[in-house]
Amino acid sequence: MQRDLLDMATFVTQAAAANGISLDPERHAQVVATLLRVEEMAELVMAFDLPDDVEIAPVFAL
């Protein structure tokens, strides 16, 4: 977890810079904590083996 936290802190610093967002230390810490929660959701989604032919619907037609 400590390693994840450090990696996410580095990621947030770099992604914020790439997007022109300035974060003070308190905001930075909160965004890291929030993104770690989103990462838990992403792990579920990324672990799913999608067939190659499943694509984003060009128009979301139901």
Binding site: F11, V12, I21, Q30, V31, M46, E55, I56
Partner: peptide
């Protein structure tokens, strides 16, 4: 809401695309 939106603005694009493709599968 600010920190959730900030985090969302920064998240890796692979997560988003996989989530959209998964939506198709689940549908």
């Amino acid at each position: 809401t600010r920190d959730r939106l900030l985090a969302g603005a920064l998240l890796p694009v692979a997560w988003y695309i996989q989530a959209q493709r998964f939506r198709r599968w689940y549908y």
